[in-house]
Design a protein around this nucleic acid. Structure first.
Lengths: 353, 353
DNA sequence: ATCCTTTAATAAAACGGTTTATTTGCCCGC
DNA sequence: GCGGGCAAATAAACCGTTTTATTAAAGGAT
């Protein structure tokens, strides 16, 4: 912090005085706004302006505490340096990690971002991209949201899973993810494996389930219908997982392992299993998905398929900014695939029996 | 979704055609921009414009897919309908809940918001308010961040705990919070209670600790120095809590209960206690703070002092928008106090012995 | 006819910058 | 003594709205 004597109120120097604009600054200097603008922006056109004048301008700008008006500048340059991010909800877990990755990269590049969460309401999903574009965002990032409608700016979807013209998809290698989980479980001797599918609205649900079935087949496992349940409430908590766990138990088909759609629901399911007297992992091994921050601190700590969520966020931001920079050209990556990782913790072990 | 035939490419109707601006729309109509603007904004000055013309204008606007340029409008009206939110991090837990409350209210009122997270870096804390103001935000919300520097827009701080001119503070009734926790624990027969203090950088740390000491005194408890440890890493995970728990055990002073600074750290501490063979709650009762979404799904589920985090977020947004509306007048609430609530779950029970 | 009102609309000045094209000296070479 | 070139700066257009003051025509009252 600069040492500013707040007592000294007469100089135009430090107070949070009223805004001074370019015209006033120029008048104060006895120069034209054009000159001052060129200097302040270190425009190449300013090369013919002598150092001395440049310094004079900058000193005065500091003294008068000149701050260029962002809206005026945006209007003229037709750039907002703002991007829009659409997420299902600002929840614990998934979105929080992705957002922090996005933010990291954007702030570093001088961009700001708007967040809007739609809580799976279809009308909001339809409406938000338009609202953001009216606000002048230069690009959009969709997180776990299948984007629809006309989009006239570059866009990136994280786990979007639908090929939309103009949208770059960032997705996990689900095939590999499913194999990691099932191969590991079968290695541990599990053959009766239960599954919790994601909510219908989650864009990952279908592709992940397809991958699981393929992986099961490859591993010579057959998936019992009674060992498959689906999440169905839209709560972002572990409650849906808990309910799914209960349903699984009601089906009274024995199983020694559970592969759940995500960590949040795995945690809920574990609670249901426990209440029914099953010990984790002695009676049932549980594998989650995502590796959210709290997964490692569950009791027992959660074995899970890690998605590099922060990295996916960063990659989304990076890709988007590149696309914006190249804007008129429409050669852009359609798809970026990231790799999962099996993180073995304490919620899994060898099959009983 | 409107039924729009995407094949029909000749009419100017539906395609994501190039932007049409007010001037072009006016020309198309054979009217002046002024007239069109008045109609589109339903300005009171438009009352003298006949219904028929108004309809004509609106129909054409729809047909040409006219969207007013937000930057031009903001520049002219000198309003951005944007506010800035500064948080330590977009983490699981605390900030996520507060943010969702903030968002709820803001979107409802037609405002957008920028988020910036500083991860406790002092230079960023200094820098961000200025950056946001340069971006034209009409107000600022600080979450768990003591704001500094000159602020020339209305501001609200959640758990700011420092009286800063121009900032409304939203705080929890910590006195009551501490009493709820300690009265409950003493009722359960606990006398040897350990404490985990918050990190030095958290704005809640000091006032909460002061309240705890006062409550302890009121309950006739003395706080043993060896039973107090402080969180000290800046990780937003449970790791610092885990480390704090270990330190507590190393001090080898017996205790039957632990009151931790927040849920995240309580979860870490529980892990440390467990590793040392202590059962929760049979050997040690643990009380957290915040009631983040995952608290209810811990194993055992976490007894905690609930802060109404979403409500605090909503209240912050509401207060801020009210202040913006009244802007020139500087009578504003200095402080808003919200009440905590004791949520008893399974991590606490009667003292052993 | 004259003056006032009302209706329907417009011209033009903001808002606060950026940027292109142009001006004004001034020095240099011949 | 004059055209050319350069240095230093500026005028003015532009970005796309909003909003105030003004105009133009028509109708009504006196």
């Amino acid at each position: 912090m600069a040492k500013s004597k707040s007592a000294q109120s007469d100089t135009a120097a430090d107070p949070s005085a009223k805004k001074v604009n370019l015209r006033e600054l120029a008048e104060h200097l006895g120069l034209s706004v054009a000159t001052v603008s060129l200097v302040m922006n270190r425009s190449p056109a300013a090369k013919s302006i002598p150092q001395q004048t440049q310094i004079r301008v900058r000193v005065a700008a500091r003294e008068l505490n000149y701050r260029p008006n962002a809206m005026a500048r945006m209007l003229r340059q037709r750039r907002s340096f703002t991007i829009g991010v659409i997420v299902p909800e600002i929840s614990e877990g998934y979105a929080a990690l992705v957002l922090s990755g996005i933010e990291d990269h954007l702030l570093q590049e001088g961009y700001f971002y708007f967040v809007m969460s739609h809580r799976h309401k279809n009308d909001l999903i339809e409406e938000y991209p338009g609202l953001l574009q009216e606000r002048g965002v230069e690009g959009l990032i969709f997180v776990d949201t299948t984007c629809s409608g006309r989009i006239s700016v570059p866009a990136v979807a994280i786990s979007g899973h639908r090929h939309v013209e103009g949208v770059t998809n960032i997705t996990l290698n689900h095939t590999r993810a499913a194999r990691l989980a099932l191969d590991y479980l079968t290695e541990q001797g599990h053959r009766q494996i239960a599954f919790i599918k994601g909510q219908a609205f989650s864009s990952d649900t279908e592709v992940r389930w397809k991958a699981v079935r393929a992986a099961a087949q490859a591993a010579g496992l057959s998936i019992e219908e009674k060992l498959v349940v689906q999440l169905d409430s839209e709560s972002p908590t572990s409650q849906p997982g808990y309910e799914a766990g209960r349903r699984l138990l009601e089906n009274s088909k024995p199983f020694t392992a559970l592969f759940s759609f995500n960590d949040i629901s795995a945690i809920g399911a574990i609670r249901a299993l426990r209440e029914a007297g099953r010990r984790i992992p002695e009676d049932v091994s549980v594998v989650g998905f995502d590796d959210i921050q709290s997964a490692a601190f569950q009791n027992p700590s959660l074995t899970t398929i890690r998605q590099p969520l922060r990295e996916m966020g960063m990659s989304a931001a990076e890709t988007l900014l590149k696309r914006i920079a190249n804007s008129p050209k429409d050669d852009y990556p359609r798809s970026i695939v990231v790799e999962p990782e099996l993180v073995i913790r304490a919620s899994t072990g060898r099959a009983a029996k």
